[in-house]
Design a protein around this nucleic acid. Structure first.
Length: 938
RNA sequence: GGGCCUAUAGCUCAGUUGGUUAGAGCGCACCCCUGAUAAGGGUGAGGUGACUGGUUCGACUCCAGUUAGGCCCA
């Protein structure tokens, strides 16, 4: 007879196979329909705010793995805080201005660009940026990210732009912002400044020369054995045309230099480069006179090789010993490192080259001559003065203009700067850094070093797509006009018409009527430059946190990749400390880079780039989210398909665990069946609920500590070991074969019901789609809200009672013993004596009181806990030859095949099977149930 | 070249202040079950702790260096 119909077999329409890609779309639709984000806002209205301020990604291209990691981490935190009862709004943002977008548009337009006005070009850029903002929004939503996507913050919005202009003028008026000069990449053919991304490196032939600078003066006590009158420092350069702008020579402070006698001359070169210099200059015979370190030569003075001026000897770590002489010709107006050295030694940033690449009047000798033509003349001049030691052609990689393909130069131009030392700004930033919680803690050291070491922040860019630097100059004296009314007019203009208005308006329309500058000038012009985009994003805390009523300043948390120590963390900090006197964040959390399976960075050229949307399509967003949670994101994280397989396995295990619980609760009505008094629950169910409660406590802590990896492992362990292997396996007998409405079965269901409801909420911040899918499948009587995200974090009320009733050590011991029994049974199985463990009968020999107390306490249930036919306890010493050894020293075990018959209904091997003549294939536990069942059928 | 970071089983991670035989889950192998079934259970095999040297009675843990990799600079 088939007794299956008399069992309580699981039933659920929650599918085992997730088919995430499709089912996630249904969840998205559901969230959209009920307006979930707004509902969460309403639910937590009035609660304490928790502000995670989103750093704006650049509105270009599709999102990459790093963006996916970043937004998912933020989303997990925001969802957890919301469930925990904080008012945690999330306003996503985008960085919309900047060179890459402008570059794309300029490329698209080609020559047509000359027919368009600045405002028209800007309109194209705006459309381009907005298009990508929309793409990003779709992609973030697809990842399951919750936020105010209907009203994000955009750096190109009118509100935001006017806040940028306002902040700029605030800082200008407080003296933080000033003009200065700085060398930048410059194309002398296009007459324009270039960004690093706008140069192409190509092969170029230069003339490399070795030049001698006569030493005039050395620091006291530096050189003792070398006569000064013949002493020269040798430099090597591939840009002879920069020699007129030379103001110094840099040595490496740590290098050892030598003075070398060659015929009647004495030269200084780095010791390690002496051989190569001697070879290059073809010295047949030379003699080392003395050694000296670079730092000992600091502040020596040399004579320029062909101009009437002295130049300074400096030291810098940028000086290398791979080529040249170890002594570096330094023209602060024509190179980045030269510029830095010039600033350090207070040299002028001298750049005597005009925008079309000819010398200005300060270089009398070559005035009006192109720098390319001057190269030969300068070499000739050096030869005449006897300071040219060697000349050669050198083919090397050199920057060229991306548009006209001509070689570019470094040339100094007037730029706007934030003065790092003004009003103690640097020190105040360093102090503000100490007030912030940095995670990981080394972040504090990292950003402090950067803040400590950086030079003035150049905030001007010679581009079109950005927020203009709203300054008016007097054409007579070339000075910026500082006037209160002017500033107000500018701010009003921008607030009303946006920054595009700046490009249309005449400067006289902004100035008071008949304005005369202090110098007497009456003609004015507008600044053409725009602001660095880092300045724009750096004011987001002012433009967003301070301006939106649902947010607040400062933020509780900034969470970005480690590259933002240099970027947004810092730009935001400088501006906040300057204008607000403190950091714009209480805490900063950073994550690492997403690398490929081999730990290499993802690059298009390496062909190892993985697109997160592809992963979503193939595996589902929840798999990606689970992957995020499994990683220790404080370091770089690897992404590979083996790992994704592991993650999918874990996902299936978690999903099936839920499926089992749901399948066994099909006939459970909480109002009627839930056992409210924990004391009435069966011991095993009490244990399971205590485990659940303790897990809840730990997981809550881990969420609060942003330690999602631990959550992943805990959840996986709980599902695989605590529930599936331990609890459910024992429970099946009770759930399937006991009378439907028996107290024992309802006890098990009560536990499952509570575990299910707790677990579904605590996985929701990570497995958002699956949690919502489960929630949707729960009977209405199980839940008090339409979405899992509108519930509250589970309570731990029952914990106290349970922790008194349940002795965890007892259970750990029981499970340990079960493991030992399994090992013993494994031998019988290997010998083909039994198959299922239910066929085994166990004898436990133990003389130890504590163990016996424990075993006797649970004696009624031991066979069900151990999944065996029968357990016999004995205090006697077992016969030595018949005993399986065990890891528990005080206990010996003996297992053998049972002699009992298998009950056809519950599959247990009980002594009662076969004793009833009417039901010869059933045990005495099943008989009344079958009888009742058949009565009901009649 | 500089600042900061990383290196523990095939994968993801644990490892209290240096102290027995370095743990877990997954995967893998073998077995069982067939009433969670493209599921479930059991057992087992996997680690020169990147490498080298030092401190120590004792080092995965502390120190130095090397190698490989990452971010940001230069």
């Amino acid at each position: 007879m088939d007794y299956k119909s008399t069992l309580n077999i699981t039933h659920t329409d929650f599918p085992m196979k997730a088919n995430l890609f499709q089912s996630e779309l249904d969840r998205l639709k559901f969230w959209d329909e009920i307006g979930l984000y707004q509902k969460i806002r309403e639910k937590n209205k009035g609660k304490v705010k928790y502000i995670l301020h989103d750093g704006p990604p650049f509105a270009n291209g599709d999102i990459h793995m790093g963006t996916a990691l970043n937004k998912t981490l933020k989303d997990i935190i925001v969802k957890f805080m919301s469930l925990k009862g904080w008012d945690a709004p999330f306003v996503p943002g985008w960085d919309c201005h900047g060179m890459p977008i402008e570059h794309k548009i300029v490329e698209q337009l080609g020559d047509h660009i000359h027919q368009l006005s600045k405002v028209e070009i800007r309109q194209r850029c705006r459309e381009y940026a907005l298009n990508y903002v929309n793409r990003h929004i779709q992609q973030f939503k697809r990842l399951g990210v919750f936020g105010n996507f209907d009203n994000p913050y955009l750096t190109l919005s009118l509100d935001y732009e006017s806040k940028i202009v306002e902040a700029f003028h605030d800082m200008l008026n407080q003296g933080f912002i000033t003009r200065g000069v700085k060398p930048i990449l410059w194309c002398t053919v296009c007459h324009s400044a270039l960004a690093e991304a706008e140069v192409e490196y190509a092969s170029h032939e230069s003339t490399a020369i070795t030049v001698a600078f006569q030493v005039k003066k050395v620091p006291p006590n530096s050189l003792k054995k070398t006569p000064l009158e013949f002493l020269k420092i040798l430099i090597w350069t591939t840009t002879p045309w920069t020699l007129p702008a030379n103001l110094g020579i840099c040595l490496n402070p740590k290098f050892v230099y030598v003075t070398v006698k060659v015929n009647s001359n004495i030269y200084i070169v780095a010791k390690s480069l002496l051989n190569s210099v001697a070879q290059t200059c073809q010295w047949s015979d030379y003699q080392i006179l003395e050694e000296i370190t670079g730092s000992e030569m600091e502040y020596a003075v040399c004579r320029h090789p062909f101009l009437e001026k002295d130049v300074l000897v400096m030291v810098g770590d940028h000086v290398t010993a791979d080529t040249g002489t170890g002594c570096v010709h330094t023209a602060p107006g024509h190179g980045r490192e030269d510029f830095e050295a010039g600033l350090k030694y207070h040299l002028p940033i001298y750049s005597p080259v005009t925008e079309n690449g000819v010398y200005d009047s300060t270089v009398e000798k070559y005035h009006g001559l192109s720098i390319w033509e001057a190269n030969e003349k300068i070499i000739e001049q050096l030869r005449l003065t006897g300071n040219l030691l060697f000349k050669d052609k050198l083919v090397h990689s050199y920057p060229h203009c991306w548009r006209c393909k001509n070689p570019v130069i470094f040339r100094s131009t007037t730029q706007w700067f934030i003065q790092i030392e003004k009003h103690e700004l640097r020190n105040r930033c360093l102090e503000a850094i100490r007030q912030v919680q940095w995670h990981p803690t080394w972040g504090q050291e990292r950003i402090s070093n950067m803040v400590q070491g950086r030079s003035d922040w150049c905030i001007s860019r010679q581009r079109t797509w950005g927020v203009p630097i709203t300054i008016i100059y007097c054409q007579t004296c070339e000075q910026p006009v500082i006037d209160k009314q002017l500033t107000e007019n500018i701010l009003t203009l921008i607030k009303n018409r946006g920054v595009d208005a700046w490009f249309d308006i005449e400067s006289k329309d902004l100035l008071p009527l008949n304005y005369v500058h202090t110098c007497g000038g009456t003609q004015f012009k507008k600044e053409n430059d725009i602001l660095d985009v880092w300045f724009e994003s750096g004011i987001s805390h002012l433009a967003v946190l301070k301006m939106r009523s649902e947010l607040q300043w400062p933020a509780d948390l900034y969470l970005e990749g480690g590259d933002q120590y240099r970027g947004w963390f810092q730009s935001s900090l400088w501006i906040a400390v300057a204008l607000m006197g403190q950091a714009p964040y209480h805490s900063v959390l950073t994550h690492g880079w997403v690398l490929d399976a081999h730990g290499r960075a993802m690059h298009k050229s390496a062909g190892n780039v993985i697109n997160p949307m592809e992963i979503v399509e193939k595996f589902g967003a929840d798999i990606l989210r689970l992957w995020v949670s499994a990683q220790d994101y404080t370091e770089d994280v690897s992404f590979g398909y083996e790992m994704l397989e592991r993650i999918s396995e874990a996902y299936r295990r978690i999903r099936n665990t839920f499926r089992f619980m749901m399948g066994n609760l099909y006939d459970f009505e909480p109002v009627h069946h839930e056992i409210k008094d924990e004391n009435q629950l069966e011991a095993l169910d009490q244990w399971a609920l205590l485990e659940m409660g303790q897990l809840l406590l730990r997981i809550t802590e881990y969420y609060e500590a942003w330690n999602f990896t631990k959550i992943f492992h805990e959840i996986e362990f709980f599902c695989a070991v605590q529930l599936s292997a331990r609890y459910f396996d024992i429970l099946k007998d009770r759930l399937y074969t006991f009378e439907k409405d028996s107290l024992s079965r309802r006890s098990a269901q009560t536990a499952l019901y509570r575990i299910l409801k707790t677990l579904v909420i605590i996985i929701a911040p990570i497995l958002s789609f699956t949690a919502e899918e489960i929630w949707g499948k729960l009977p209405e009587s199980f839940k008090m809200a339409p979405s899992v995200f509108l519930t509250n974090w589970p309570s731990t009320d029952s914990m106290e009672l349970l922790s008194h009733v349940v002795v965890k050590d007892e259970w750990e011991n029981l499970f340990l013993l079960k493991e030992e029994i399994s090992k013993s049974i494994e031998h019988l199985r290997k010998d083909k004596i039994i198959g299922s463990s239910l066929q085994a009968e166990v004898f436990i020999f133990c003389k130890e009181d504590q163990w016996n107390q424990l075993l006797e306490k649970h004696f009624q249930n031991l066979s069900s806990y151990f999944l065996v036919s029968q357990v016999t306890l004995s205090r006697e010493v077992p016969p030595a030859d018949d005993v399986k050894s065990t890891l528990i020293p005080k206990i010996s075990l003996r297992v053998r095949k049972t002699e009992h018959q298998k009950c056809a209904r519950c599959w247990n091997y009980f002594s009662s099977v076969g004793t009833n003549l009417d039901f010869s294939d059933l045990c005495d536990r099943c008989i009344p149930i079958v009888q009742k069942h058949s009565r009901l059928e009649k």
